[in-house]
């Protein structure tokens, strides 16, 4: 269970998150929606430990552990996975090697045995196939020369292989066509279970057609201004954020 209380954060002197209270019980998928600049991506970065952001107050625990006190790799080991809005390119680093290194680091942290190259490839190929991605995805350098859509799909593949307990999807749907959108949704849906929760940050409702959330939260000016069921997303699609924000202000 992810439990966020009174979380405030800033970049430099500029406050971005102004007091977030949010609980995502295990097994649930929550959507975070909101206009540009509302702090959606900041929330994802703060939860995953990006250094440019300073937490100025509040707390965030995951399954009882204070994740804000952890290094980024410790959070990853604890099961936090951030699907980046703009996935980073790593020239010369091949995807398979990258993922195996990551998976083994996480397994080591859990006291599990490491996978050798053969075991890993077997697992990775199975996931690649299940997600209907081309085999060469594993051979290529991490995100180098990938189209926007391929980068997003690569994030989903990584998620499938690393099997996080909390997935934060930062606008993973942006710039995707409907087929790719379905792959992303299927990727998350496949992980759904009593131990898995997800925060789906999105601008649009259409991803939520395929990935039906338990709750929808609207973020504006660094605060959650409204929370509701899946129907809230549909409502927003029709009426926009303007009314909501004005209401909250």
């Amino acid at each position: 269970m992810l439990d966020i209380r009174g979380l405030t954060a800033s970049i430099g002197d500029k406050p971005i998150l102004k007091g977030i209270d949010l609980t995502v019980p295990a097994g649930e998928v929550h959507a975070i929606m909101g206009p540009n600049g509302s702090g959606k991506s900041t929330l994802g970065y703060v939860l995953s430990g990006r250094e440019d952001y300073t937490v100025t107050g509040g707390s965030a625990t995951f399954n009882g552990a204070d994740i804000l006190a952890m290094e980024p790799e410790q959070r990853a080991a604890a099961g936090v996975f951030l699907a980046f809005q703009a996935p980073i390119e790593l020239p010369g680093v091949n995807n398979a090697n990258f993922l195996r290194t990551a998976l083994n680091a996480i397994r080591r942290a859990h006291g599990e045995s490491e996978l050798d190259a053969v075991q890993f490839l077997k697992l990775a190929r199975a996931e690649t196939k299940r997600l209907a991605m081309p085999d060469d995805m594993l051979k290529r350098n991490v995100n180098v020369g990938f189209s926007g859509g391929e980068k997003k799909r690569n994030e989903v593949l990584q998620m499938a292989i690393l099997r996080p307990k909390l997935a934060i999807l930062d606008e993973t749907d942006s710039g995707l066509d409907i087929d790719a959108l379905k792959i992303v949704a299927d990727g998350v849906n496949a992980l759904r279970g009593p131990e898995f929760s997800a925060l789906v940050i999105t601008h649009h409702q259409r991803l939520l057609d395929h990935l039906v959330p338990n709750r929808v939260h609207v973020l504006a000016h660094g605060r959650i201004v409204r929370t509701g069921g899946p129907e809230l997303a549909k409502e927003l699609e029709k009426s926009g954020y303007a009314g909501l924000i004005a209401e909250a202000a």
Partner: peptide, 25 residues
């Protein structure tokens, strides 16, 4: 790049090693 690797679970030194090896590939 460092943050991306660490988010995936790599320690900072492993991330540097990986990126450097990629640079030298």
């Amino acid at each position: 790049q460092l943050f991306y690797c660490r988010q995936r679970g790599l320690s900072e030194e492993d991330a540097v090693g990986l990126i450097v090896n990629g640079f030298c590939k």
